[in-house]
Design a protein around this nucleic acid. Structure first.
Length: 374
DNA sequence: AAACTCGACAACCGCAACCCG
DNA sequence: GCGGGTTGCGGTTGTCGAGTT
């Protein structure tokens, strides 16, 4: 039967958009919402296919888009998320407010990829080309444990991205964008400025708090590419260290609260850190870190006072380039070429590359969905 | 000044997932 | 459950401007 073309190809304009076309598209969406993209061009008086209009809107005209230079923080986030998620640009984009997946993809391909390569790091695997880290200073178990955490975090981010998409869809299905709710040309910081729904703050936490689980009870969190069976997967991860310290696993933590109870910052099980994008894992105690990240100590799960929560919190903190708990003594890969890149020196985070490389080393391939080893 | 090269980024293409009747 | 339409996503290409020869 074959695929029907997205639009009649004849007579449709391609290539760069003109200011007039932009204006037409903007005016139409502002007034009517986009509705069906397929039908939009005719209604808006554009000689473009709907797909082209959608892309133009999504990647360029949408009011809640930040353009211009990427900040250091954004660069780090991209690199770190890429290490975990691979080329899943849309998932990465959900963690970079106001940036589009296309923009991130372009930035990666034109800047970051080259920069990593220049530093001797394979941008696909995020491993140093000279695999100096695989031995983990003679502690292969560290690598395995970090691999588990990387997989777990990857799955979490994926679930988060999925929920963000769903929220978006929900908002969109309230018909298209309500014109009255749009303030073109304004920043998304005002709640009514954009069609975007409220951000899904912490879907995993929602899942946990919505259905308190006892140990051994399954909590299934589906994502587009994977289904995670929570209790099932915590245990092997835990077992890779020693045993659960004080039962402070997320499911157990959630179980200590009544269904529907809001867990506030300061709650025993959910010490939330008020920090942008610190979410699921930071529901646990982060301040217990000393100068050394516990998961880099050995064996991390049996270290006195090292609870599950600390592992998770620290891991996310590490991903975010949080200096707390990153003071490892491992050799610094970046020192070889940090002058060339400037990336590391700019924030003085000397262990950034080391930690991210450690964390992803020998983890699942960058293009694979998360797989939990047993 | 013209030709050429290269980098950056916008836009396109095609596949896959999703939605809905 | 099925099939057609729609949308999302990621890889790739095209265009343009700046720099170099």
């Amino acid at each position: 039967m074959g695929r029907s073309p997205c639009c009649e190809k004849i007579g449709l304009k391609k290539g760069p958009w003109t200011p007039e076309e932009d204006q037409k598209l903007l005016a139409y969406i502002e007034k009517h919402g986009h509705g069906s993209w397929r039908a939009l061009p005719a209604k808006a008086g554009l000689q473009r296919c709907g797909k082209s209009c959608r892309l133009r809107w999504t990647n360029y005209l949408r009011p809640d888009i930040k353009r211009g230079e990427f900040s250091l923080q954004e660069e780090q986030t991209i690199i770190q998320l890429h290490a975990l998620l691979g080329n899943r640009w849309s998932a990465i984009a959900t963690h970079l407010p106001k940036r589009t997946d296309n923009e991130i993809k372009n930035y990666w391909n034109t800047h970051l990829k080259k920069r990593l390569a220049k530093m001797g790091i394979d941008p696909c695997t995020h491993k140093a080309k000279i695999d100096m880290l695989s031995s983990a200073n003679g502690h292969p178990e560290k690598v395995a444990n970090l691999s588990h955490m990387a997989q777990w975090e990857s799955a979490r981010l994926e679930a988060e991205a999925r929920l963000a998409r769903e929220s978006k869809l929900r908002a969109a299905s309230n018909s298209t964008i309500l014109p009255q709710q749009q303030h073109m040309g304004t920043s998304s910081s005002s709640s009514s400025a954009t069609p975007l729904p409220p951000a899904p703050v912490n879907p995993w936490r929602e899942a946990w708090s919505a259905k308190p689980a006892t140990q051994g009870e399954r909590i299934d969190l589906e994502s587009p590419t994977s289904t995670l069976s929570l209790a099932e997967n915590w245990l092997p991860i835990m077992a890779s260290g020693t045993e659960l310290v004080d039962g402070n696993a997320p499911a157990a933590a959630a179980a200590t609260h009544q269904e529907g109870e809001n867990l506030e910052p300061g709650d025993a099980g959910w010490k939330c850190v008020a920090k942008d994008r610190v979410d699921c894992f930071t529901g646990f105690s982060i301040e217990a870190f000393g100068s050394e990240a516990p998961w880099l100590s050995e064996p991390y799960t049996s270290q006195a006072g090292c609870s599950w929560g600390q592992l998770g919190a620290g891991f996310t903190a590490m991903l975010l380039g949080d200096s707390g708990g990153q003071n490892t003594s491992d050799s610094c890969v970046q020192e070889e070429d940090e002058e060339a890149t400037g990336l590391v020196e700019r924030d003085g985070n000397k262990t950034y590359w080391n930690t991210i490389l450690n964390s992803v080393n020998s983890s699942s391939s960058s293009n694979s969905p998360p797989v939990f080893y047993h």
